[in-house]
Each structure stands twice: as structure tokens, then as C-alpha cells.
């Protein structure tokens, strides 16, 4: 599911709480989905658009913190906003360290919550956008041939064409050609840009 505005996922075992949060979120024009437990949430379809999680720390079964850990391990980057009825400092520290977006206590001032949600969504939107960019770059990278890729690697390492030719055992001219291709396919305007792209893609730069 793709949702430009973003979806807020509410997980709380107390039904009234759940309902009220959903109501609140919808009242500011956001989409909200409510779940009674972490398992329920995990079992549902994954999102593709921006979103954030509003989570009660204390829940029967998998607790909020456990869910956070799980998602981190799974590599999902969705921002989490914790709610709790118990103000527990160690807990909040732990949550924040683990990357929570916000940690709020119940009863929560709705403005605080909404702000946190907006922030989180923005963050996620950005993240989503970023991810999209990276995906694009990746596509471009994939379109390179192996030799081109090799050349690119050495280019971003800063090697001259001559050196590259030596390294890869090809003629300089060939190198130039490849290089040209790389630049084209990668749609990099300059070497620097290319290097940036490589960075973004997380390509390792071989040292000569």
C-alpha cells in the first residue's frame, strides 16, 4: 500500500485507548490503522509509503520494546512513537537509544502526540524519498556491464585512465570508452557526482 500522506499505526491493548487514538489521528486528516497487539501488526501487510507507529510500551505478549528490537533487526526503519502509562526512565532511555522517534506518557496531550506524529511522518517521508533515490541509483548501477563496473570502481578511487588500463589490462582507449559509458549510464555530471553516488550506494572504494 502506498500512501502519500502516510499511515499511522496504533498498537495498544486497551480498546478505548486504541479507538481514541485512532479517532484523534483521523481528526487531523491522517490515516490510522489500529492493532491490539504487536503480533497482530506484524501479521498485517507491510507498507511501502511513509508511516509511523504509535506504540504502548506495556502490552501482553510482545512488549513495545521487543517489537522495536524486532523491527530494527529486520531493518525496517519506520519511526516509532512510544506511549506509556508508567513513566519509567530506564525504559525510556532504552527506547530512545534503540532509535525511537519519541517517548510520551499517558495521558498524553494530544498536541504533543500529533506533533510527534507529524515529525515522524516527515522523517519517514524523507527516508522513503531517500530510499527511492538510492533504488534509482542502484538500477543505474545494475545497468552497467561488469567491465564498466570495474572501471567505475577504479575511477572513483581516483585512478588515471592509464592506471586503470594497467590495472584492468585494457587499453587506455578502452578505458576511456568504458568510462564514458559509465558516466552516461550513471547520469553523473562529474567525477565528483559519481563518487557521491557510489557513496550513496555504499560501494566500497578499493585502495590502490
Amino acid at each position: 500500500m502506498t500512501e502519500a500522506g502516510g499511515v499511522v499505526f496504533v498498537i495498544d491493548d486497551d480498546p478505548s485507548m486504541r479507538e481514541s487514538l485512532k479517532n484523534l489521528i483521523r481528526s487531523v486528516g491522517l490515516r490510522a490503522e489500529a492493532f491490539g497487539s504487536a503480533d497482530e501488526f506484524l501479521g498485517s501487510k507491510r507498507l511501502h509509503g511513509p508511516g509511523c507507529l504509535v506504540l504502548d510500551v506495556r502490552m501482553p505478549g510482545m512488549s513495545g520494546l521487543d517489537l522495536q528490537k524486532r523491527m530494527v533487526e529486520a531493518g525496517t526503519d519506520i519511526p516509532i512513537i512510544f506511549l506509556t502509562g508508567h513513566a519509567d526512565i530506564p525504559m525510556s532511555v532504552q527506547a530512545m537509544k534503540a532509535g525511537a522517534a519519541e517517548f510520551l506518557t499517558k495521558p498524553v496531550r494530544e498536541q504533543d502526540l500529533l506533533d510527534a506524529i507529524q515529525q515522524a511522518l516527515e522523517r519517514d517521508r524523507a527516508a522513503v524519498a531517500k530510499r527511492a533515490e538510492v533504488d534509482d541509483l542502484r538500477d543505474r548501477l545494475d545497468s552497467l556491464t561488469p567491465r564498466e563496473r570495474d572501471v567505475m570502481r577504479h575511477v572513483i578511487a581516483g585512478l588515471l585512465n592509464k592506471q586503470i588500463a594497467g590495472e584492468l589490462d585494457m587499453s587506455e582507449t578502452t578505458v576511456k570508452i568504458h568510462r564514458h559509458h559509465v558516466m552516461e549510464k550513471m547520469r553523473a555530471g562529474s567525477l565528483a557526482e559519481l563518487v557521491r553516488m557510489a557513496d550513496r550506494l555504499g560501494l566500497p572504494t578499493p585502495k590502490s
Binding site: 486497551d14 478505548s16 485507548m17 479507538e19 481514541s20 487514538l21 479517532n23 484523534l24 489521528i25 483521523r26 481528526s27 487531523v28 486528516g29 502509562g85 508508567h86 499517558k106 495521558p107 498524553v108 496531550r109 494530544e110 498536541q111 502526540l113
Partner: peptide, 26 residues
């Protein structure tokens, strides 16, 4: 405390939502 907070919290949220709904004329 926890027992009572739950419904209270929900009430606050619903009230906030209500105001917004009213503002949105819903």
C-alpha cells in the same frame, strides 16, 4: 493509577479529536 489512566487518556484523546472534527465541520 494505570487502570484509571486508560479511560482518562482515551477521554482526552477523544476530546481533542472532537474539537478537530468540529473544526473540520464533521
Amino acid at each position: 493509577a494505570h487502570e484509571i489512566n486508560q479511560p482518562l487518556g482515551a477521554i482526552v484523546n477523544n476530546a481533542g479529536a472532537c474539537l478537530r472534527w468540529l473544526a473540520a465541520q464533521n
